[in-house]
Simulated scan of single mutants.
Amino acid sequence: MRRAGLQRVAQVSSLASRRNDDMLSVMPAGVVIFPGSGITGNLADKARRLGISVWQAAGDGA
Score class of each variant (00 low, 15 high):
Arg2Leu: 15
Arg2Lys: 12
Arg2Asp: 15
Arg2Ala: 10
Arg3Cys: 04
Gly5Gln: 12
Leu6Asn: 08
Leu6His: 10
Leu6Ala: 11
Arg8Ala: 14
Val9Lys: 15
Val9Arg: 13
Ala10Arg: 15
Gln11Ala: 13
Gln11Trp: 10
Gln11Pro: 00
Ser13Val: 10
Ser13Trp: 03
Ser14Lys: 12
Ser14Val: 07
Ser14Trp: 11
Leu15Asp: 08
Leu15Phe: 14
Ala16Tyr: 00
Ser17Glu: 15
Arg18Trp: 08
Arg18Gln: 13
Arg19Met: 09
Asp21Gln: 14
Met23Val: 10
Met23Glu: 08
Leu24Cys: 03
Ser25Pro: 00
Ser25Thr: 02
Ser25Ile: 00
Val26Met: 13
Val26Phe: 07
Met27Glu: 13
Met27Phe: 13
Pro28Asp: 08
Pro28Trp: 05
Pro28Gln: 05
Ala29Gln: 15
Ala29Tyr: 06
Ala29Arg: 15
Ala29Glu: 13
Gly30Val: 02
Val31Cys: 03
Val31Trp: 01
Val31Met: 02
Val31Leu: 04
Val32Gln: 03
Ile33Met: 11
Ile33His: 02
Phe34Ser: 06
Pro35Ile: 00
Pro35Arg: 05
Ser37Gly: 11
Ser37Glu: 11
Gly38Cys: 04
Gly38Ile: 04
Gly38Glu: 03
Ile39Gly: 08
Ile39Ala: 10
Thr40Arg: 00
Gly41Tyr: 01
Gly41Asp: 06
Gly41Pro: 03
Asn42Gly: 13
Asn42Arg: 10
Asn42Tyr: 10
Leu43Cys: 08
Leu43Pro: 00
Ala44Val: 09
Ala44Glu: 09
Asp45Asn: 06
Asp45Trp: 02
Lys46Phe: 02
Lys46Trp: 04
Lys46Ala: 11
Lys46Cys: 04
Lys46Gly: 02
Ala47Asp: 01
Ala47Gly: 06
Ala47Arg: 02
Arg48Ile: 09
Arg49Gly: 05
Leu50Gln: 14
Leu50Lys: 14
Gly51Asp: 05
Ile52Gly: 01
Ser53Pro: 02
Gln56Arg: 13
Ala57Phe: 12
Ala58Thr: 09
Ala58Asp: 09
Gly59Thr: 06
Gly59Leu: 07
Asp60Val: 12
Asp60Thr: 14
Gly61Lys: 07
Gly61Asp: 10
